[in-house]
Amino acid sequence: MKDYLVLRVIAKMMIAFMLLFALYVQFHGELGPGGGFQAGVISAAAIILYAIIYGLPAAHRVVPEWVVETMVAAGVLLFALVGVAGIVLGGNYLDYFVLDPNPVHGQERGIFWVEAGVFITVSGVMLKIFYLFAGRGRDEESES
């Protein structure tokens, strides 16, 4: 769809706001509706829109495969490490009260990192799934 001027210009304008909205949903999720799951899906959707309009190779240049694959594992690892941090600081697994001298701040800190882990894994998995499905069609086309 690279030849459609209107789509290209509008998409370019929208993608910036989609990514910004994803960040808003991620970091404002403690005060309003939102959180890691939604933000991950929205940011993946922004990249998917980019891939649909500008083609998969362009999207691969923006977010390479190895970054996406690292994200898939890194998010779960970050989540699990937050739990381990609770043990190291003298609490239970996934105990946030010990992460800061002030228990309420500890909770906020724990929730922040856990949501970050969820965001990374969810956006990585969604993007990876899209890359795989879209890439398969392209391979078949080039061969036949």
Partner: peptide, 17 residues
Amino acid sequence: ILTAIVVGVATLALGLA
């Protein structure tokens, strides 16, 4: 349900694969 939706789409993608 929030978590179930995201897990649902991941498993749906597995089925589609």
